[in-house]
């Protein structure tokens, strides 16, 4: 057996908050996430990018133990300070971890809050569940304080309001307040700014980053927006077809991508590069439906560099302690940043 991305880097160090090993998510006979492995250090902000259907959200939900009914995770997810594996842990154990050690901000702020409960109570609840505040009164006071921290004007009145009285951006601040309430070791964000107006996105993003920095929390940030990763994260992992295909420091991956998929992704987000007909670069074809990716390299049916060898599974090639890629025909490592312009613009016409 070849060392898969799930087994590298080898052992979790003391510094690691989260260590995911050989994570698979399956439904029926189909594999949606395959052999995903990574670690996040204390206080580290890591981005997880990829197109829709690449398995980013499922990876995050596996970490939370909140996969939709019918989906199964296997492998290992370890969290510092928790003496059991999060994969396969029962609800009783998971409920002690969720909201306290790991918290999550979801994509859709409009539906993430209970419409029939006052916002202040929804925040106070997470403090009372984990007994981080001794009584109702102090939990309520803490809720108001948290609302102030996420920048809601008149937090006292806001605590008494119902979710429908807030805008999407304000609701996402409330969701963030709930997530940060117990100073989690790890904050998982699943496209937290995607559903928001562009003008609000930057402010919410800033609040999230400030929130985790103030608490020295680590963050796993899922998005398909490369610019968001560039502002919010230190390290980035690229997912495609349910696998990690590349990982490394944001600057390195974005300026010198090695995997051909990363290269295409970055090329597609570069709005200054157009072909001779003035069209933006794209990646050829579209993401196959979940569980229907080709064997071997999952990207080979959309890759211009694919050869026969790509029908076998590419090994994870480490290029540093937290970086590496899985590709038989990587972008040459010595290449200057300028040479990384995607080569598949021609193919984008298809």
């Amino acid at each position: 057996m070849t060392p898969a991305p799930g087994t590298a880097p080898a052992a979790a160090t003391q510094d690691d908050v989260l260590a995911v090993r050989n994570l698979d998510v399956t439904v029926g006979g189909r594999t949606l996430v395959e052999d995903v492995g990574f670690t996040i250090r204390a206080g580290e902000r890591v981005g997880l990018i990829g197109e829709s259907g690449s398995g980013k959200s499922l990876t995050a939900l596996s970490v939370m133990g909140l996969l939709p009914e019918g989906l199964r995770a296997s492998g290992s997810v370890r969290l510092a300070g928790v003496d059991h594996d999060l994969v396969g842990a029962d609800e009783a154990r998971m409920s002690r971890v969720r909201g306290k050690e790991i918290a999550m901000v979801f994509q859709e702020p409009m539906t993430a809050l209970n419409p029939t409960m006052r916002v202040g109570r929804q925040i106070a609840e997470v403090l009372l569940i984990h007994r981080t505040r001794p009584d109702r009164a102090s939990a309520r006071a803490a809720a108001v304080e948290l609302l102030a921290q996420v920048g809601l004007p008149d937090p006292g009145a806001a605590a008494q309001a119902y979710p429908h009285q807030f805008s999407g951006g304000q609701r996402q601040r409330v969701v963030l307040a709930i997530a940060l309430a117990n100073d989690p070791a790890l904050l998982v964000c699943d496209e937290p700014t995607t559903a928001l107006d562009v003008t609000v996105q930057a402010r919410v993003l800033d609040l999230i980053v400030r929130g985790v920095q103030d608490r020295r929390s680590a963050m796993l940030f899922i998005t398909h927006d490369l610019a968001v990763v560039a502002t919010a994260c230190e390290r980035v992992m690229v997912m495609y077809g349910g696998r990690l295909v590349e990982s490394g420091p944001v600057r390195e991956v974005f300026t010198r991508p090695r995997h051909r998929y990363t290269q295409g992704l970055i090329g597609a987000s570069d709005l200054t590069v157009v072909d001779d007909r003035g069209r933006l670069a794209t990646i050829r074809g579209s993401v196959p439906p979940a569980g229907r990716f080709p064997a071997g390299c999952v990207f080979r049916n959309r890759c211009d560099h694919a050869t026969e060898v790509c029908a076998t599974r590419p090994e994870w090639i480490p290029t540093g302690p937290d970086s590496g890629y899985a590709c038989f025909h990587p972008v040459p490592g010595s290449a200057a940043p300028g040479a990384t312009t995607p080569t598949n613009q021609e193919a984008g016409r298809g």
Binding site: S95, A112, I178
Partner: peptide
């Protein structure tokens, strides 16, 4: 799901 993410069974 939010309620469960808070730590409610």
């Amino acid at each position: 799901r939010t309620a469960r993410a808070k730590g409610l069974r």
